[in-house]
Design a protein around this nucleic acid. Structure first.
Lengths: 245, 245
DNA sequence: ATCAGCTTTTTTATCGAGATTCTACTTCAT
DNA sequence: ATGAAGTAGAATCTCGATAAAAAAGCTGAT
């Protein structure tokens, strides 16, 4: 009847805390779009789902709220941030501003090591399948990871961990929209080709055209989400009904 | 002599939670530079200082860590983020990138209401004293608040709450550096004049020159902090002794 | 003296119960 | 019916105690 009867060992998290473990899992599920249907996030529900006490769960929720993936009203608990077309627009706009700056700085301060990292990231991305082989209707988490790593590598030489962090944060938000809206790849789009062009121009030091390709990449993705959004997305996720105080 | 022995009702925070209250107070103290001498932040210490249980305190610490004001190592607690010259440099650089973009967007999407807010913010700032009248060696919290409000108003029309949030975050960090290094105003610097010029050029729609003034403003402040830093700042604050793992 | 290994002390992280606050529902008067 | 007031239920938030982990202290051999 020890404390963590089942828990801390569960899986791999050898020396991490329960709070961090819940944080990670919940975050993954958030980005995966797995929870977008519910607006309110009751602590008790999270507790029973991830098998941890209220205290670590609350810590995890607080972190996620500070990151903008959840919302919080004092004495009224936590809720999933609603999704909307205008929010997606604002998100994309901001993302383009920051990523442009980051990419330009990266290019103008490039190092040999950074270039190698980028080549590597592209290669790995090329090797991965976007959809799961066994179930082509589901996104491949491995691809998602490599995709993020590629974009991360792209701006890795910008000499600002702040800017990198902000881009990551926006990237998380964008992922959420993309996976919620079930953006189906392959439909008249050459994912790999787009990334290859971005990398090529970047490695060539052609900042203007690299930025152009990168921004088009983001805007195209956003536009496709918007479509799905408009046509048939169940708006249950947006029900947060921002209540007054 | 505890802080809020009588706790939640204390003062005005009628319907907020203890966690939020601790968060606010601790955050203020962090920015005020009041705690910079200690590197480690023991939970028990915070508990006894702010008069709340461990759970709300931990929630507050988690929020602050997610914001970058604190650091955290699993199973090893929280610590104050160390300060350093290179970090200040990186911070300033990032800040200039983001604020430039925000100001340009604000100017090119300006509205009458935004302009009025800006005029108002400048007026209020002009009325406030930077130092406390009774003790000229201490910064006036009221001025700090109005100063922040001014810069916030400046970028208020940029149409991105994300960008505004990022700028706020960097602004917090910059405040911390400024107040830690005890940047003494009045020494050969016309604070109000700088802000007035920024506002004028902004209201004139002269984006290029407004940005120039704004960035000079930030860079000058950073340079003054750096001086203080180099000459006589007690580096106890930076002792975080980045321990491996 | 120095360092590995063990013991003690300090600190962090977690749980379970209880107090407080909000929400939903019922009742009653207009 | 509509709306206000009161009540029962559910959820959030908080505390105090306890387990787990890390840090500090100690012993003894090389």
């Amino acid at each position: 009847m020890t404390y963590g009867t089942v828990d801390p060992g569960e899986g791999k998290g050898a020396k991490s805390t329960l709070a961090s473990s819940v944080y990670q899992q919940l975050r993954d599920d958030l980005l995966r779009g797995a929870l977008a249907a519910e607006s309110k996030l009751r602590v008790e529900w999270v507790v029973s789902r991830y098998g941890a006490g209220a205290s670590p769960v609350r810590e995890a929720l607080n972190r996620l709220a500070a990151e903008g993936l959840l919302g919080r009203h004092d004495q009224r608990g936590f809720f999933l941030m609603p999704v909307s077309a205008t929010e997606l627009e604002e998100l994309t706009r901001t993302r383009c501003w920051l990523e442009e700056r980051a990419l330009r700085e990266s290019i103008s301060h490039r190092t040999a090591e950074w270039e190698e990292q980028l080549v590597l990231a592209l290669h790995r991305l090329a090797r991965a399948e976007r959809r799961l082989p066994e179930d082509p209707s589901t996104n491949n988490p491995e691809w998602e990871k490599l995709h993020r790593a590629f974009h991360r590598a792209l701006i890795g030489a910008c000499r600002s961990h702040w800017l990198v962090g902000f881009c990551d944060q926006l990237s998380d938000q964008a992922s959420r929209y993309r996976l919620i809206s079930q953006d189906t790849p392959g439909t008249g789009r050459d994912d790999l080709g787009e990334h290859r062009i971005i990398a090529e121009r970047t490695l060539d030091g052609d900042a203007d055209r690299a930025v152009e390709a990168l921004l088009n990449h983001y805007r195209l993705t956003a536009a496709r989400c918007m479509e799905r959004f408009a046509q048939g997305y169940d708006p249950r996720a947006g029900v947060a009904k921002a209540r007054r105080r």
